[in-house]
Amino acid sequence: MSNQQVVQVIIFGIAAALIIFGGIRVVTAQNIVRAALYLVLTLAATAGLFVLLLAEFIAAVQILIYVGAVVVILLFGIMLTRAPIGLTPDLDNESARIWGLVAGLVFLGVVTFVLWRHFASVPALELSAPDSGANEALGRSLLVDWVAPFEAVSMVLLSALIGALAMARKD
C-alpha cells in the first residue's frame, strides 16, 4: 500500500466509525434532541466519506439538504409535538428491543453473506483526484439522460409540498 492509500484507509476508518457511532446513538439515545444531533454527526460524516469517494458535489448537497434542511424539519417536528427535552425513559418500545435486534442482525447477516460472495474479491479502489469537469458531467447526466425522472421528481416534490400543507394545516 502506498502512503496515499494508507491515508485513505485511515480517513475512511474515522468516517466509518463516526457514521456507525452516530447511527447507533440515534437509535439508542434516550434524549430525543440528542438523537437528532447524533443524526447530524452521522450525516456530516457521510458527507466526508463522499468527499473521499470523489463525489464532492453530492457531499455539498448532503450538507445543504440533509444537515441543513431535513434535520431542521425534524427538530421542528420535535418542537411542535412538544416532545419532552431531556432524558425520556419511554422513547423505546422495551419489549420490541430484542426483536428489533434480531431483525437487524438477521438482515445484516443475510446482506453480509451475499456481499461477501460477490464483492469480496473486488480489488482496492483507485481514488485518484477527480477529473476536472466531473460536475459538468453530472449536470449533463441529470438534465439530458435523466431529464424525465428529474421532472418527475420535481412533480413529486411539488405534490409533497401541497400534501404536507394540506395535512398540517388546521382545517
Binding site: I20, L74, A83, A103, G104, V111
Partner: peptide
C-alpha cells in the same frame, strides 16, 4: 449494510414517530 441494519433496528424499536423518521433517514 451496518448503517441500514441500525436503521431497521431504530424503525422497529423507537416509539416516538419523529425518531422513526430519523431512523428512516439513516
Amino acid at each position: 449494510a451496518a448503517l441500514f441494519s441500525i436503521g431497521i433496528y431504530g424503525v422497529l424499536v423507537r416509539r416516538n414517530a419523529v425518531l422513526v423518521l430519523m431512523s428512516i433517514e439513516l
